[in-house]
Design a protein around this nucleic acid. Structure first.
Lengths: 339, 339
DNA sequence: TTGAAAGCGCTAACAC
DNA sequence: GTGTTAGCGCTTTCAA
């Protein structure tokens, strides 16, 4: 089957291919009659624009690169869901790349995006990412760049995040208001800004309510379910005194709950538990897990909208807008001592 | 900043741009010395290949379109995760499109893929999709097309699915072997092939183990958690006699469990429960939910591998390979009467 | 082993 | 309102 180009349509109608091109692009200078004839012929010949040729010539691909750590994480797949919906409705397509939390793959992704001449890049960095030269490169090439959730602190670019500090604060505040006094916090041992912020919120909430910060109650590790269990086991072994746990993630909180239940500790009467992320299982487990919602879907839509705003008005580039969404406290049974 | 092309590299070195192109593509006829010089210069000038130009000329984009109903559904995001991983490792990139279960958007997605001259399309159809003209068009244009999970029955193309019939059979068989005799099955009232298959598996398992099919035990509705609850409420109201439930989805099964627990019915002693899909919450709820795993990740990887196989050997196109994955029975507490 | 030259299908400046 | 023309940056055939 021969490939149909605008030249074929032009020959059919005895006009030139540039007229055809203009007609198809709804150029104002073309007569209605010609437009109709061209469209009818295009339809009949089963013509389909070649976006590659169009992109090469015009310098616009209408594709934006979206880089995420992993679609296995519900949060990221929801953000991508939101981004794709909005961008798609605005004539953009999504080139997807996963870093799998590897710096090397993240660099490859950026490289691919650059070679593919995407019209913009929306990214959330991997946990491994410390150097940011590959992002600097994007800026140098004047390709619009936005971050969401996990952002490199050294860069002054538009972003959408949630206020992790506030999330940490309201989670801790909630526990305090429920009457808990010795609140254990599990955080990540790596220097990841979102986790550091949650920790900072935790500490400020304690101070704000005149509780003192006890370094023994700050446990550094990772956010796996297994680590949550381990923390409780070790706390028991060492005789650590605590009456609530604020875990950096729901999975960690889940491990905490499982181990507490195994030790026949009553939740929330003896120990209160709150997680972070509002994973879908939280409302289904027993007891239900209190948590902080991160507004994944909103974040996806907002970052897409911010992108569209950015390219419409690039005078904004000197003052990159940094949207910070409010985390939402979700109180369920695991921390609801007062009922 | 001026854009660097192979012409710039050529000028730097006093050779022609076609030699540069060959050097960069590791053409065998180019001397090692030239290759090294070219690469060094490319690096120094910060050259980056323009994939758009390359695609236009070569007719290959190294992009494949992936069309899914919605990334909000964990199953699909896991499949995409698997596809992206494998394709990425093989030099392909993913153009992502969501149909949101709408036929119109599905058509738009296919149209975009065709215009973008993707090297292949991997799709899972929307629940609305009945006509398939838009897929016929892909085949006509000789663009490789593969389906996974939800496939149009009228088309003879490569696909990867799981055996839903077998899933229904082994779920039911498991309940029977645990000693349950009056097994209630919740299915969808719409004619969706995967659900019909699960129902067929359920019925055949009953027959195979000499239990008779009782139409009163087959409840038609939807797979929401709320419907699961409703079924148990109505069963109680009508005095329906049953000792196990096989629900078409985990969320439905969850509703069933919640309502049973509310009625103080012991799970699994009095009533056994099994779901379908292996949602992440299944292992975290109390009691743990038995289920059928759909191998989402494997499905993604397999469909990607099948795609690669297909394009390597297009003689296969006359006998499209249709891979059917085995569902996996996951026994947890909710159905484990015998321990 | 390298160079010359054509052209992929389109957009857009300029001409009439 | 439509035609002419020149590329976008690369791959690839043919020639030397």
């Amino acid at each position: 089957m021969k490939k149909i180009t605008i030249l074929d349509i032009a020959k059919e109608l005895g006009i030139t291919f540039s007229t055809v091109a203009r007609a198809l692009n709804d150029h104002p200078a073309i007569s209605a009659k010609t437009k109709i004839a061209v469209r009818e012929t295009a339809e009949r010949l089963n013509y389909r624009q070649n976006k590659i040729a169009s992109s090469l010539r015009s310098g616009k691909s209408n594709v934006i690169g979206v880089l995420v750590p992993s679609l296995q994480v519900t949060f990221f797949s929801l953000v991508v869901y939101g981004i794709e919906q909005v961008m798609n409705a605005n004539g953009y397509n999504i080139l997807l790349y996963q870093s799998n939390e590897k710096l090397e793959q993240e660099k490859n992704g950026i490289e691919t995006f650059l070679q593919s001449r995407v019209d913009g890049i929306i990214a959330s960095i991997s946990t491994e990412t410390t150097e940011i030269a590959h992002y600097q490169e994007i800026i140098t090439r004047k390709t619009p760049l936005l971050f969401f959730d996990r952002i490199p602190t050294q860069l002054n670019v538009p972003s959408v995040t949630i206020d992790d500090y506030k999330g940490g604060f309201i989670a801790t505040e909630h526990l305090i208001k429920q009457g808990y006094k010795r609140i254990l916090h599990i955080t990540d041992e790596q220097d990841i800004s979102i986790f550091k912020e949650r920790l900072r919120g935790y500490m400020d909430a304690l101070l704000h309510y005149n509780l003192k910060i006890d370094e023994n109650l700050i446990i550094r590790g990772n956010f796996s379910l297994a680590f949550g269990k381990q923390v409780i086991q070790e706390a028991k072994a060492s005789g650590l005194n605590f009456d609530a746990v604020f875990a950096l993630e729901d999975f960690t909180a889940m491990g905490v709950m499982q181990q507490l239940l195994e030790y026949k500790v009553n939740i929330p009467e003896e120990v209160g538990v709150i997680g972070f992320a509002n994973e879908s299982f939280g409302s289904l487990v027993t007891p239900n897990l209190s948590t902080i919602d991160q507004q994944a879907l909103t974040m996806g839509r907002e970052v897409a909208k911010l992108f569209l705003k950015q390219i419409k008005d690039d005078s904004l580039e000197d003052h990159p807008e940094q949207i910070v969404l409010d985390p939402i406290l979700i109180v369920r049974n695991s921390s609801n001592k007062k009922g």
